[in-house]
Amino acid sequence: MNNKPPLLQTMNLVTGYLSGSKRRIPVAGPLDLQIFAGQLICLLGSNGSGKSTLLRTLAGLQPPLEGIMTIAGIPSHQISSSRLARKISLVLTDSVRSSNLTVYSLVALGRYPYSNWLGILRESDQLIIKMAIEATGIEDFLDRKVATLSDGEVQKVMLARALAQDTPLMMLDEPTAHLDLPSRIQLMRLLHQLARQTDKGILVSTHELDLALQVADEVWLLQPQTGIGALLKRGTPEDLVLDGIFGTAFEKEGIRFDKTTGSFQVHPGNGMLITILGGGAAAFWTKRAVQRLGFSVDEERPTALIIRVWEENGKARWALEQKCGTQSHETMKSLLEALSLVSPIA
């Protein structure tokens, strides 16, 4: 992958704003970044860490405060806006519902950089629009007005428009926001496939940490620093997790990233210790249930409180062992009721 020249490269790039009379407010940097063809990059960071600012800067929507940015080897300030439109396509968070456009004409707007002064589409344009529509699976609502679509449908339509623009680079700003879980997974999977099949370089800013860990070829992690602009850690998602960088980036009070499951723990888990013996799905969900009650699960050594989990005729069974004796339970509900009498938090 790395013997090809990058589609986009930055050197010492500082993003940020100019406030009033030349007062610079840096948001992130200095950054040395590259995007290669066929790469899906997820840009992660907490709210206000400067994801959108970085994305807008890379997309040419706002000028960098410092540094050099080259697109296909050409310095960004030398690229005309019409040429840039053939290099980078965008999916933004801006609302497009007020436009009164039909889905088809919105997607067709993607051909804008290629059409003549009156905006008349040629046959080759129609063909690319058709391909974009098929790739995103929006054939069923081409004649509907954009205002009548659901959030998930709008994102697909905006993705189709970006595809119709037919650019080697594609940038999406939080495309999964407001979507339900299946739509989020669908969209991320689609982006992953697009990067593979069309050899596009795709940059997605998102809050979907676990999805990003699954689909991204590379993760860019923005970490805000007090006083100066944010720093960016980049690497293969698995490397970032194993090095603990991922965990520390999102650690807030009482929220911990669990390296072994790749997810965040909702419950602080500083209560009474408990041991779960057994395996499989039942043991996993039992662990989740007791954590919700406030217990801390000790994986290593047996504690005063032990739950045994096993299966009997395809059904899960539990036994709760305490000093005073052993009770068996047929449902999770009765187990939890018995556990709540033990009162872990008090």
Partner: peptide
């Protein structure tokens, strides 16, 4: 489509 999209289309 608004200013940002318009700009991204050149």
């Amino acid at each position: 489509l608004g200013e940002n999209y318009a700009r991204s289309m050149g």
